[in-house]
């Protein structure tokens, strides 16, 4: 049998989104699903609720604009597509038509980070910076495919917009058992506990951070991993708590530009609240157009792969402490 792929399909989170939307369509007769020709994952919803499904073809701007129009009239629109095009082509529609009036439009999609070997036209690497800049926008990035369903369900009662970022990598793994963590938008998850340092991360690199922590445990290091799946609003209390409980030693790892994403948000909290850290390192995409290769190769090439994560965490742990204040 030949294997066929459709771009925009999520190989693992796909079915979760499809079934969750179909299920939510039943309980919410004002739920609409819109897509600019990336509808392969939405077939179940489309077939069940054809008159609340809209595929506008290749037209991201009008897709978001129409969603805003629907939301003005009391509907809950979900726009599903590829994030480089939604976050950039439709940026002004998201900002002015959705965020400005604070409408409950959900933007969900794939291709967050250096995934799928599409090249720089197809990598959303600055999307979290763009979305985080928008007043009223809630910004999330999900690694665990099952969590996507939970986030969608919770978002149904939100009065304003939300951005939900997914990767498409082969490395998409189920990270948590259902019910294992209290998943709430705005709260980080301690995916693995530890005391020597904290790795903060989101999305597809959570699995990598867990692997790094496991590798470091082999030589006696106790590393905490925080899945900071909500970038905005950021869980300030958890950042302060981790500074206290892991000796003020932070690594931030993300499949996004190293400046402008989670690392920047955490650094802002640290600066604004006067949190004292001993060491802080950020691992993410440098300001280059990244080229081709598979996900893992690209991460290694650009300095935020597994080996780099382990090395940075070691450095952070080895970094001398400030003299304790008296």
């Amino acid at each position: 049998m030949p294997v066929t792929f459709t771009f925009g399909e999520m190989l693992s989170a796909r079915s979760v989104i499809g079934t969750t939307l179909a299920e939510l369509g039943e309980t919410h007769d004002n739920l609409w699903v819109l897509t600019p020709d990336i509808g392969a994952t939405l077939v179940e919803f489309r077939d069940k609720y054809p008159d609340r499904f809209l595929d506008v073809g290749l037209a991201e701007q009008v897709c978001v604009g129409i969603a805003a129009g629907l939301a003005y009239d009391g509907n809950i629109p979900v726009v599903s597509g590829m994030l480089p095009f939604l976050s950039m082509r439709a940026l002004e529609q998201i900002r002015t038509d959705v965020c400005y009036p604070n409408l409950p439009v959900k933007i969900i999609g794939t291709h967050g980070g250096l995934v799928g070997n599409g090249g720089s036209t197809h990598y959303a690497v600055e999307d979290l910076a763009l979305m985080s800049a928008l007043t009223n926008m809630t910004v999330t990035s999900i690694g665990d495919p099952l969590m996507v369903g939970e986030i969608l369900r919770q978002s149904m009662t939100m009065p304003g917009p939300i951005y939900i970022r997914l990767a498409v990598g082969k490395s998409d793994k189920v990270l948590y058992q259902p019910g294992e963590h209290d998943v709430r938008i705005g709260k980080g998850i301690i995916a693995r506990d530890g005391t020597d340092a904290t790795i903060f991360t989101h999305g597809t690199t959570v699995a990598q951070a867990l692997q790094a922590a496991e590798d470091l445990a082999a030589d006696g290091r106790s590393v905490r991993v925080v899945d900071m799946f909500t970038l905005k609003p950021i869980d300030e209390a958890l950042i302060a708590q981790c500074a206290d409980e892991t000796h003020g030693r932070f690594v931030v790892l993300e499949d996004h530009l190293a400046y402008g994403g989670l690392a920047t948000r955490i650094a802002d909290v640290v600066a604004d609240r006067g949190i004292r850290l001993n060491a802080f390192e950020r691992l993410g995409i440098p300001q280059v157009y990244a080229g081709f290769g598979d996900d893992e190769e690209l991460r290694d090439k650009h300095g935020y792969g597994l080996a780099a994560t382990v090395a940075a965490t070691r450095r952070v742990i080895a970094h001398p402490s400030w003299p304790t204040s008296h």
Partner: peptide, 16 residues
């Protein structure tokens, strides 16, 4: 094609 550092990928890249 498609490999790390290749000039040839899924979409044309003038940088490469």
């Amino acid at each position: 094609y498609g490999k790390l550092d290749s000039a040839y990928g899924m979409h044309p890249c003038k940088v490469q």
